[in-house]
Design a protein around this nucleic acid. Structure first.
Lengths: 318, 318
DNA sequence: GTGAAAGCGCTAACAC
DNA sequence: GTGTTAGCGCTTTCAC
């Protein structure tokens, strides 16, 4: 490992001159700077992040904490965030689980974007004292240094449900994802508002965890239900897909026996039969908007955060 | 931001005592250690990664560089790597594009796992001089400090092709992914070996880039082909799916008009109709094995690296 | 059992 | 235009 000292030695100058040259300080004439850069590259020198971070008290890095790499919804979000961050000269690191905790606590980044329900509100507010800014995408959390840029689930689900009702469905059940999460609560509230405005009553509620397997289990409960149900509004696509598959395997037809819809518009949803009606979120654009906001925040500029809108994708499942 | 000095001040001791206490050095009696830990937590102190990394000259962090978050194959790999790394007390950071370059150059991690064809062999060998170990998953590269843990594409594709031939297919075309990549070359070579051993000749080669859209384009070329083709062996599932869809939209039946197969066994492959025959890679186990090897390497222990095997999944597409 | 002090590799204020 | 130097926040050697 070569250090700045090695470069200085070879170049026959002081380490500060090397530092200035490498950081394009205008005080160093181009001829000198070029010579030093050439030497640095010859001996394979690159400044150490650890040393620079310690001295400058910043990392030029942004952390994105996600719940897991397993779900189908993060790809475009991350691509969008990275696209915008790179454009602004920031490095993006992505982490999950205990790695996120470590990185956050030890301030391995200048700012963070959080979409991981496993990190508690308390942890976040505690963190936000030393570490700012933090943008949360998966909850509504008021605190200094914490900014909310969630999806407008309520409005989107309200529209979807209105459309369902307009098609004549009257015996509607709701399939919940993980309870007490922002996504589940707000999707449910949008649904409820539409139901109530139409003077309909909620026939039944099922409780899953946003995964396909939980949809499979719920489908079996649906098959045993004594209530009349003609429509299943699901808090996300993955559960909806598990339900569709299982219902079909048990001789039911969609949308003849049950109408169904999801949320997220994951890729699979346009492949299954019938194609699933859902709410599309443009995750790439959302990611770009979030990153752009974070960059402003990192520069201590004022920002106005707004919710990301979903787009109704009406297909064949009801 | 509180530092170790603040803790020392409150505790009425020196910073070295604080450091010892927080790092569970046995010289500090439990009573003192507990008191110091309590104070640290009260004032919200956490050691700075930058300072610790600089002093200790290591980060306890592993970098995983991937090409993009867009493809469907990385989730389980990353989950597997993270699972094993966390178990061994390492923090995992994931990066892509220019962020990977920055992180690698500046030694923001102790070791790296690379599966990003955008990083050149030259860059990697250059990097490996300052930064070790590096495990590559997407190429075959011999160099000090660089270890190869690729998928045994050749063997898997050889088996698949033998099965195809045994079903009586004689007019076989190959659909390439990105040229000169490890995955494409080795999958093609396994295919070729089986074809040649059966004294069959390769009817036609198509060139895509591992994505569904490139499959769509190729399907249109297939429809215009003058050669007789009854089987399409694709270098991955995504291209195969693009081809199937497009062929079907143009009135062709699979597997009646064309047999087809893929590689990777992505989730979608068991949903489409007909279900795609493919090679399944257990990405989670692969990730675990890779991480386990890296941990050994980080401890300067000897390792034997082996290729990950694929499993033939015969379904309905030929 | 505890503390003083050196030093990791940089940046940047200051001096010349 | 260049060099000297302090110091970022830690860990760890060496005294006591």
């Amino acid at each position: 490992m070569s250090t700045i000292k090695d470069v200085a030695k070879v170049a026959g100058c002081s380490i500060s001159t090397v530092s200035y040259a490498l950081n394009n300080d205008k005080r160093i004439p181009d001829i000198t700077a070029d010579r030093i850069k050439k030497i640095a590259s010859e001996i394979g020198y690159f400044p150490s992040a650890a040393a620079r971070n310690l001295k400058k008290r910043n990392t030029d890095t942004v952390l994105v904490a996600i719940s897991d790499f397993g779900g189908p919804v993060y790809h475009e979000l991350l691509d969008g965030i990275h696209y915008q961050l790179a454009k602004n000269g920031y490095t993006m690191i992505v982490s999950t689980g205990v790695s996120s905790d470590n990185l956050l606590k030890e301030r391995s980044a200048d700012g963070a974007i959080i979409t991981d329900i496993h990190i508690s509100d308390e942890t976040l507010t505690q963190l936000a004292k030393n570490f700012r800014p933090i943008i949360v995408l998966d909850r509504s959390l008021k605190d200094t240094n914490i900014y909310n840029m969630t999806i407008d689930n309520h409005a989107a689900m309200f529209e979807l449900t209105k459309d369902i009702i307009s098609k004549g469905y009257k015996h509607i059940a709701f399939v919940h994802g993980v309870k007490d999460t922002y996504d589940n609560s707000t999707r449910f509230s949008g649904f409820l508002e539409a139901i109530q405005k139409a003077n309909l009553k909620l026939v039944k509620e099922y409780y899953g965890n946003f995964t396909k397997p939980s949809g499979v289990i719920i489908a079996h409960e649906i098959l045993k239900a004594t209530e009349q149900i003609d429509m299943l509004v699901c808090a996300n696509d993955e559960m909806a897909i598990g339900i569709i598959e299982t219902l079909q395997q048990n001789g039911k037809e969609i949308p003849k026996d049950y109408g169904i819809c999801g949320f997220d518009d994951i890729e699979l949803s346009s492949y299954i039969s019938p194609k699933l009606t859902s709410i599309k979120i443009n995750h790439f654009e959302w990611g770009k908007a979030v990153a752009k906001t974070l960059v402003h925040l990192l520069k201590d500029e004022d920002v106005i955060t707004k919710k990301e809108k979903g787009i109704l994708k009406i297909r064949e499942s009801y």
